[in-house]
Design a protein around this nucleic acid. Structure first.
Lengths: 133, 133
DNA sequence: CGTTTGCATTACGTGAACGTCATCTACGTG
DNA sequence: CACGTAGATGACGTTCACGTAATGCAAACG
């Protein structure tokens, strides 16, 4: 079994990132691998966070924005007041993401319409040829 | 009436970008303002493209990716074969965007669940206090 | 007519997110 | 014990997407 701990190399292969990237994320306080002597060992928590980081990146968030978002996912080991604040932020983020999805839907619809238009043009070109031929 | 042409300053105010940005986009062949002497004049087409550029940026596309996407939106003044190719690419992009929306939905659901969890924890803290008080 | 205003070009600077290279250390293996 | 392998630590390099002067021109204004 994987003893819940992964080396940097294993991490890289699993998530298709470079060692440099993982060290960089640690420097930026996005990941907190434990140390066995010198070597980094990544925990289950690090892996969960890395997944969220990569997902965040795919949506164009900066690492700093992602760092803030990550805190929303380990709500629990906090003081109550801090937690309430975290939850407020989470609600805002959630609203952002839903707005974002709206916009994405709009973009999809726009592109679909362009596609239908293009297909129609091509069809008419084909008919022209047939009529002329 | 706006004679369909806008100065760089008008563009900046309308879309909240800097002159530098617009010149940069022109250099990168994302926009093609016409010239009146030295001065740039932005057409309706430029404005449509700029809107798409800004939208693309919000979704984390690079300017180069956006440049390619832009071609999908003026399908029409092309040769048939080129147009067919463009449409193929558009279909792929469309699939990407729909997958992206799926992932975004997933992210939203995840965050919602975290939120419910956090709210539950807070509620239980409140009950503790009541019981203890 | 001098000056401000608006825009232009040229060019160097910057922050984010890593890549790359040199050097060092610790560990297992023949 | 020499040696390859895996990982660590600087430190400098790079790409992207602009920011920020410095300088120049041309019309408009007082």
């Amino acid at each position: 079994m994987t003893e819940d701990l992964m080396t940097i190399r294993e991490m890289c292969e699993t998530y298709e990132v470079t060692p440099r990237t993982l060290r960089f994320y640690e420097a930026k306080e996005l990941l907190f691998p434990i140390r066995e002597g010198q070597k980094r060992l990544f925990t289950k928590r690090d892996r969960a966070r890395l997944k969220l980081i990569l997902r965040g990146k795919r949506f164009g968030f900066s690492l700093e924005e992602i760092r803030q978002l990550l805190d929303l996912y380990h709500v629990g080991d906090q003081q109550k007041t801090q937690m309430i604040r975290t939850i407020e932020i989470a609600r805002e983020r959630l609203a952002d993401m839903e707005a974002r999805r709206e916009e994405l839907t709009q973009a999809i619809d726009d592109l679909k319409e362009q596609l239908r238009w293009g297909e129609k043009v091509i069809a008419s070109i084909n008919h022209e040829k047939k009529a002329a031929g």
